[in-house]
Design a binder for these strands. Structure first.
Lengths: 341, 341
DNA sequence: AATGGTACCGGAACCGCTCCCGATAACGTT
DNA sequence: AACGTTATCGGGAGCGGTTCCGGTACCATT
């Protein structure tokens, strides 16, 4: 099967006429090697395309150069983008990601912990681990002492390293935009209330309404999931409620699109009859019917920043600041119109 | 940092009063251990929660129990579902996935090959690697002698292990359904022609038309990408062409939804003015406006089957059959109607 | 000329596990 | 009673790196 016996550090050392430790030193970029020898060894390494065998490295050094990736869901655009960014960043630092359990099933936790005990990953990236038992996960991780950074679940009070987007600001921005267009009866289709990002967007919405002096109407707030279906169902309920509204803040674009489907089905036009703003700026948003006005967040950059932070903690022991918050951006398209009464 | 010194096989051996090789034997489920000793050792292992350190294992045995995952894209629903299935299956067999390069950039190939040379993965799962230079990848892999299975790019003639869905049959099924409703002028919005799956769906479309005796009209075939945007743009071109059509086969649901957006923008109704059928059955399809009739494929099962095949090849050296084809299923909703002239 | 300091390199002991091979005991066999 | 078999186990040599520590050689000090 493996016809090509791989070169080892011994082969390099022999060919270069030096000892094994010396080769190891240039491999790891350590001092105590003269420039000439270093160059000579490096040439030989390049020439024979030698790659150190990571298992041996890990055994000897207790480092594996692999990172654990625990994500609640892959099929979500947000996740996939964050993961894509994280992976690119990791490769640039010489790390690889190992897939941990992809669900937040409590029963999957033992499997996930094996990432730490058996595979000895150097650190773990938790992506939006905000399911019900998340605190259990996180405290356990904290206790284990291994470097962790979380994202998608901004919990500044925990002191954990994390990167996220300013969801309160984003929710405020969306609502203020609608307010600025003259809308006063603004409904909201929220994500799951046990997700911090949903709470924060809701908080932003409430903050914006509060500054206008008018109270939020509980009948206009519908909680749901992040799925398209939830927006569809939520809008149906909103329409049945009979509480009038002229605009909607949907906490993500999929919800927004589901809501639009329900609106169309009910014979209402967007934005003529009701304005709607989404969140995320997924690719479909631009070619939606109508093109969706939304709040964009820098997903790939979130993944990159989180990984950068993780690597920093692994290699330097600490990182300051260890909490990063990205700003959102309002993308105006044509799903919102001025409210002329 | 690491306060908890991990138990080693030595600790287990000592506590059980046996030698290290014996513990290793029960760890790897090998014979040559009496039932009593085996049980006794197993008890101790369970009791102290011992986990063998995979780096040491890999170093000694040349096995890593990790699989490489090379996927062209994470942000696609098809991919994420396949990956989810693959990961579950891998865990059930004691394997983990390591993320390889996520793009099919030719320049990423060296990085990807490091998965093989440096991390010594036991096998590689190629998901829809059907970019232009894919043949280079695959032949190189074949030569390297390491187990590979591909999916999303059915190439039976290559002899490579692969699992996929019957796209020719799926394309035929979609087209025949439209034909059965009385449509004769059926347009097609295809995926990228350098993707095998797109070619096959096109082939199915052509086969179905051929059986009716009427030739396909090249003006009604538009090639594009898999993206929503492509469906939108493709439909615009179709409408400009002035060649009449009453139904459309979109090669995936995102294309279909993009096309519907363009149709709505042009004032055409679905399905009253034009019927449209998609492919994949993504979650949004059900709550689309109108709910999308489509061809469903068992995505998670594809990932599971591919991984099962890979593990089998790794452990048994071979697998027969090494090519698996899944069937598609027609999901009838309301984006198609009978053509009454 | 003896001493101390520094830059550079090698010997050798691991890291935790697998696996080959040889040892032992308990059992038939002739 | 001497022998071969079989089941069960342990010794010990690696796997391919890292790292501690000690040894040169060469220079500048006093």
């Amino acid at each position: 099967m493996a016809n090509t016996k791989h070169a080892t550090i011994y082969d390099v050392a022999e060919k270069a006429g030096v000892s094994i430790p010396t080769v190891s030193r240039v491999l790891n970029n350590r001092p105590d090697v003269s420039v000439e020898t270093r160059q000579h060894i490096q040439d030989i390494i390049d020439q024979m395309g030698y790659q150190p065998f990571s298992n041996a490295r890990g055994l000897a050094s207790k480092r594996t150069y692999t990172l654990g990736l625990v994500a609640a869901d892959f099929s979500d655009f947000w996740f996939s983008q964050v993961i894509t960014g994280a992976e690119k960043e990791a490769h640039e630092h010489g790390y690889y990601f190992m897939l941990g359990s992809s669900s937040c099933n409590p029963e999957d936790e033992p499997k996930f912990l094996r990432l730490l005990t058996e595979r000895h990953v150097d650190g773990v990236l938790f992506i939006r681990a905000s399911c019900a038992d998340e605190s259990g996960h996180l405290t356990r991780l904290k206790e284990s002492g291994i470097p962790v950074v979380t994202t998608g679940n901004y919990l500044p009070e925990s002191g954990l390293a994390m990167v996220d987007v300013d969801n309160i600001g984003g929710g405020r921005k969306a609502t203020e935009y609608l307010l600025g267009l003259g809308h006063t009866r603004i409904a909201m289709l929220s994500g799951p209330p046990d997700w911090r990002s949903a709470c924060d967007r809701t908080e932003g919405y409430l903050q914006a309404l509060r500054t206008t002096g008018m109270p939020a109407n509980p009948d206009l707030i519908i909680e749901g999931t992040w799925l398209h279906k939830s927006g569809y169902l939520g809008m149906k309920r909103l329409l049945e409620n009979k509480t009038p509204f002229t605009a909607v803040f949907a906490q993500n674009d999929r919800i927004a699109r589901g809501a639009i489907s329900a609106l169309h089905e009910a014979g209402r036009r967007v934005p003529e009859d009701v304005s709607i703003i989404g969140y995320d700026d997924i690719p479909e948003a631009e070619f939606s019917d109508p093109p969706l006005t939304t709040i964009r967040q820098p997903m790939e950059e979130i993944g990159r920043a989180a990984t950068r932070l993780l690597v920093q903690i692994i290699e330097d022991g600490e990182a300051t600041p260890n909490q990063i918050l990205f700003d959102t951006e309002l993308i105006v398209r044509s799903s919102c119109s001025r409210f002329a009464q």
